[in-house]
């Protein structure tokens, strides 16, 4: 074995030449994963486009049951969480572990606010019978077939919320590892990769917000 004098030999896996190559390889893999995520949501965006193009009045009539204030709150909260996550990665690259931990904690807080308000909003819709498909019982919307809007709404925001939930679980794990001292300016690949994922989830919400809450 040719051991170098690197104090962090454990972070560099033996099949990579150096840390930079390891980091770039991880990033390439992460981007390939992100585009599969994009295509997963892409099917639902296709569904949305198809039904809205052929029945625009359904989306116009039904979207009035959603509260723009909630939609704007989610957007703001997710943007704030993206800022705190980006700053967390910035601080670990400066070897400031305490600030990194606090910023990751803020990211989790914003994510929890997102999910909590989303759960409240969903509970309200479910209580009113604004459910997808054949479970729809609400009669307060003009026009026919509002359940189509709600099918798209639950599938797209639901899949997105699952992604937020999964992201939060990973960030909590990253907080444990940061606290344990696994990361530094020398090695922060898991933080950076999770950041890419979190920003993609934010980006998808940036489109979901106008498509559901701001139907003109």
């Amino acid at each position: 074995m040719n051991m170098n004098d690197n104090p962090h030999t454990d972070a560099l896996q033996h099949h990579f030449a150096d840390m930079e190559q390891q980091r770039e390889s991880a990033k390439l893999g992460m981007w390939l994963f992100l585009i599969t995520e994009l295509l997963l949501f892409g099917g639902l965006f296709g569904f949305y486009t198809f039904y809205r193009a052929s029945n625009p009045e359904i989306f116009y009539n039904a979207h009035s049951t959603l509260d723009v204030k909630f939609g704007a709150l989610y957007t703001v909260v997710l943007i704030l969480s993206s800022i705190t996550f980006a700053l967390a990665i910035y601080h670990i690259r400066e070897n400031k572990r305490k600030q990194t931990l606090m910023l990751l904690g803020a990211t989790v807080l914003f994510g929890v606010i997102f999910l909590a308000v989303k759960g409240f909003e969903w509970a309200h819709h479910i209580h009113l019978g604004q459910l997808p498909g054949k479970y729809y019982t609400f009669t307060g919307i003009q026009g026919t077939n509002p359940h189509i809007f709600y099918s798209a709404y639950y599938m797209m925001t639901g899949l997105h919320s699952l992604h937020v939930l999964g992201g939060l679980a990973v960030i909590l794990w990253l907080m444990v590892r940061t606290r344990r001292g696994d990361f530094s300016s020398y090695y922060f690949v898991p933080l950076e990769m999770t950041g890419l994922y979190w920003h993609l989830v934010d980006m998808i919400w940036i489109y979901l917000f106008p498509l559901f809450y701001l139907v003109g």
Binding site: H8, M19, E20, A72, S82, E94, S185, Y187
Partner: peptide, 30 residues
């Protein structure tokens, strides 16, 4: 801070860039 100079090269963006981009995102939301 720069103990591991081999990896702290690269593209560390000043933190104010994130704050400015974040502010732009919030303004665009409004």
């Amino acid at each position: 801070m720069a103990v591991h100079a081999d990896n702290s090269k690269g593209h560390s963006i000043p933190s104010k860039v994130y704050l400015r981009v974040g502010a732009a995102l919030l303004i665009l939301t409004a």
